[in-house]
């Protein structure tokens, strides 16, 4: 049996990679990828902790719900990114500063 801590480590590593991607990438898609990684880290945690909820498996249900939400969010995000690209001819978020000041 794989101990709980291993899952936690993997999840934390995933989350950290996601955060790194979100904070450092200059490409909106990569940021989105980062966000997905962070989301998946969370889902992984949910699934892991559902082991302790043997009767209702609410963790897994919640994970499924989160995956669906993430998919929807990705769809919307990608649509936004596509539109942004159409408008600004770039998807670097630092360059999109029309609302600044």
């Amino acid at each position: 049996m794989i101990p709980l801590a291993h899952f936690m480590f993997v999840s934390a590593a995933l989350f950290c990679i996601g955060i790194y991607a979100v904070l450092s990438k200059r490409n909106a898609i990569m940021i989105l990828v980062g966000i997905e990684l962070m989301l998946n880290a969370a889902i992984l945690n949910l699934v892991t902790f559902s082991k302790h909820d043997k009767f209702e498996a609410s963790g897994q249900v919640f994970a499924l719900f989160a995956i669906i939400l993430a998919a929807a969010a990705v769809a919307v995000s990608l649509a936004i990114i596509l539109n942004v690209y159409k408008y600004y001819r770039t998807i670097d978020p630092t360059k999109i500063d029309n609302l600044r000041n």
Binding site: I19, V22, L23, I31, T94, L99, R100
Partner: peptide, 14 residues
Amino acid sequence: FQTGRLQHYLVTML
């Protein structure tokens, strides 16, 4: 503080 960059905000938040 208002750089307009999400990443900065996130770093701050973090």
